[in-house]
C-alpha cells in the first residue's frame, strides 16, 4: 500500500465532483485528499486525488474512473516525473514571549505570516507533503489552534505527458 497521486481532467459539469467521490466511496477506494479547480479552459476541471492501494487497485481505480462519462483523462502522477504542492494555514497561540520562536521556524521554512493577533499568528506554507509534515511537527511545542490543509495538487514535469484539450 502506498500513496498515489491521480490527476483527472473532467468535464466541468454540475455534480461531477460528487460522481467521482461517489465512485470512490461505493467501490471502497480511499481518498486521502482531493482538490479541484477549473483549467485554462473553463469547460474542464482538473482534479487531483491522493489515494492508496496496490498496483491492482490503482489499475481498477483508473479504469473505473475513466469509464465515467464526464472523465476526459486520468493518469498517475509518479513522484519521479511530477511536482506536487500543498498549502497549509496554521493558527498558533502565541504570547509576546514565544511569538518570535514561531516566526523563526516559519522563516526557516520560507513560510509567510499572514495574520498577527495579540494571542495568535496565522502561518501559510506551501510545499510538498513531507515539508508540511516537518513544519507541523516543529510546531509541536506550541498550541495549534486551527489548521487547514488544501490537499495535494500537482502536475507532470515537461511536455511529454501533457493532455491537450480540444
Amino acid at each position: 500500500m502506498n500513496n498515489k497521486v491521480l490527476q483527472l481532467l473532467v468535464d466541468n459539469t454540475s455534480g461531477v465532483l460528487s460522481r467521482i467521490s461517489g465512485l470512490f466511496a461505493r467501490r471502497g477506494y480511499n481518498i486521502e485528499s482531493i482538490t479541484a479547480g477549473v483549467t485554462a479552459d473553463p469547460k474542464f476541471t482538473r482534479i487531483t486525488i491522493v489515494t492508496t492501494g496496490d498496483d491492482e487497485i490503482i489499475e481498477q481505480i483508473k479504469n473505473q474512473v475513466a469509464k465515467l462519462v464526464d472523465v476526459r483523462d486520468i493518469k498517475v502522477l509518479e513522484p519521479s516525473d511530477s511536482v506536487y504542492r500543498e498549502l497549509v494555514l496554521v493558527k498558533v497561540r502565541v504570547s509576546a514571549g514565544d511569538r518570535q520562536g514561531v516566526i523563526t521556524i516559519a522563516d526557516v521554512f520560507r513560510a509567510n505570516i499572514i495574520d498577527v493577533g495579540p494571542e495568535s499568528l496565522v502561518v501559510e506554507l506551501t510545499g510538498k507533503q513531507d515539508k508540511i509534515e516537518a513544519f507541523i511537527s516543529l510546531l509541536d511545542g506550541y498550541e495549534i489552534l486551527e489548521l487547514a490543509r488544501t490537499g495535494v495538487t500537482g502536475l507532470g514535469r515537461g511536455i511529454s505527458n501533457v493532455t491537450y484539450l480540444d
Binding site: E56, E59, Q60, N63, Q64, A66, K67
Partner: peptide, 8 residues
Amino acid sequence: ADTAEIGK
C-alpha cells in the same frame, strides 16, 4: 466492451 472489467 468495458475496459474496467478486463482483469477485474
